[in-house]
């Protein structure tokens, strides 16, 4: 019990952020009409590409004096992240454009 309380106190900010974001996420999305399920999913998918910031930090501070596996993996993470972000937003936009065009 003490350990749990200690853990909570040490990471209280993080735990607050998680709790509040979950609530915000649920509030924002609830009542989404079925017609938007796919675009919402791919749009959200693109937002999860925010991991790209981690990729930028990794590669940004990588030591370039020697060629390493880590550097390659970091670059790979960046490429994957960008694919997720750019592809996700682009395809969502295309889908939504298609919906819009049909509205008379």
């Amino acid at each position: 019990m003490e350990q749990i309380l200690q853990f909570f106190f040490e990471y209280k900010e993080a735990i607050f952020i998680i709790a509040l974001s979950v609530f915000v996420g649920i509030e924002v999305i609830s009542n989404v009409p079925a017609v938007l399920h796919t675009p919402l999913m791919s749009g959200a998918n693109a937002i999860s590409g925010v991991i790209i910031i981690g990729g930028i930090i990794l590669v940004g501070h990588a030591d370039l004096s020697s060629f390493s596996l880590n550097l390659i993996l970091g670059i790979l993470a960046l490429i994957f992240g960008t694919l997720n972000v750019v592809g996700g937003f682009a395809v969502t936009d295309r889908m939504l454009e298609m919906f819009k065009k049909k509205k008379k």
Partner: peptide, 29 residues
């Protein structure tokens, strides 16, 4: 959720919030 976890590694609130938003949206769906 995975992106949010990585956000904690960097204490990056944009990553944490973005990741958890997507996590809850996906859970609702």
């Amino acid at each position: 959720i995975a992106a949010a976890m990585a956000g904690f590694i960097y204490s990056n609130q944009a990553m944490i919030l973005g990741g958890i938003l997507v996590g809850s949206a996906g859970t609702i769906l």
